[in-house]
């Protein structure tokens, strides 16, 4: 089936109520709903962590160390140091759900700026930005993280920096592609004719039209970043100890996997469920917003 050619004017004339129904369309997709449920579950758990009746995530229960299986006192059991796994999971969700979206937000700002500049101006600006992106994109992603974090040390700030360096070029490339397609449209020419300044054209005319693609991309990237933060924790490059961190929880207990597999299985499953949530949500949005 050939795609229908919708006149540009019709697309431009989308009213506010249509924008709202765009968001509502997500709720018709079953995959998106499952994704939304998983994400909401962890966000709620993270937000409610301080008021939930949980044991401390850092205190050791010496009595539980001999028998770390799930019990009435520790619903999901304890780890090798006798710390409550459920509490560590939920407090770990706070870390991962603040660091990952923050890193992706910074990376999106940098990447979108790069892509806008490259796509809108073209010429040597495009060449410089694209070549630089090519160099970064030639590195395997995890190698960038490992080299950076091993050298500048693990901290929230440094994870944000590493994510930005690793993801901004990719985001830039997507944005550049979108802008190249959009900048020949009549409404951009109209805005130029009105002598709008470039910043206005970029933020008010171009950016909203890239919106749906970029939101889907951001959602996927949050998922990948959660995986990366988990991997860094697993490699021993995660956030420093008192912060419970899912990847770190697996690393600490993987040596006793053959005795107490639950200690590693539970945080692994938690991480998979959260990443799956973001991936399903992204997929649902992409299906719902397909042009």
């Amino acid at each position: 089936m050939a795609t229908l050619d919708i006149p540009d004017a019709v697309q431009v004339a989308r009213t506010k109520s249509q924008t709202r129904s765009n968001w509502m369309r997500i709720f018709y997709s079953r995959t998106a709903l499952v994704g939304l449920f998983l994400v909401t579950f962890w966000v709620a758990a993270a937000l409610l962590a301080p008021i939930l009746p949980l044991p401390s995530p850092t205190d050791s229960d010496v009595m539980a160390m001999a028998n770390p299986y799930p019990s009435a006192a520790h619903w999901l059991g304890t780890d090798i140091l006798g710390r409550d796994i459920l509490a560590r999971l939920i407090f770990g969700a706070r870390t991962v759900l603040s660091v990952a979206p923050l890193s992706v937000a910074v990376a999106m700002i940098v990447g979108i700026t790069m892509g806008m500049l490259a796509g809108y101006y073209g010429g040597w600006i495009d060449t410089v930005i694209s070549r630089f992106s090519d160099i970064i994109l030639a590195f395997p992603v995890l190698v960038i993280y490992v080299i950076l974090i091993a050298n500048i040390g693990p901290s929230v700030m440094n994870i944000v920096i590493a994510t930005t360096i690793a993801s901004a070029p990719g985001i830039g490339r997507i944005t550049r592609g979108l802008v190249l397609g959009l900048k020949e449209q009549e409404y951009i020419a109209a805005a130029r004719l009105r002598a709008e300044n470039t910043l206005y054209i970029m933020l008010v005319e171009l950016l909203p039209n890239c919106r749906s693609m970029l939101i889907v991309d951001a959602c996927l990237r949050i998922g990948y970043t959660i995986i990366t933060i988990g991997i860094l924790g697993f490699l021993g490059l995660g956030l420093p100890p008192p912060n419970p961190d899912w990847g770190g929880m697996v690393k600490e207990s993987v040596t006793v996997l053959n005795v107490w597999p639950l200690m590693s299985l539970i945080p692994s499953a938690a991480l998979v469920s959260l990443v799956l949530g973001f991936n399903l949500l992204a997929d649902g949005m992409r299906e719902a917003w397909k042009p």
Binding site: T31, G230, I231, G247, V250, V254, L271, D283
Partner: peptide, 25 residues
């Protein structure tokens, strides 16, 4: 699609833990 999305959500260390538990332990 759901199968593929699920598999891409399992990082190597998590699937390592799952598979080792299943087929080694």
């Amino acid at each position: 699609s759901v199968i593929c999305i699920t598999f891409t959500s399992i990082p190597e260390f998590a699937s390592g833990v799952f598979l080792v538990t299943l087929f080694v332990i």
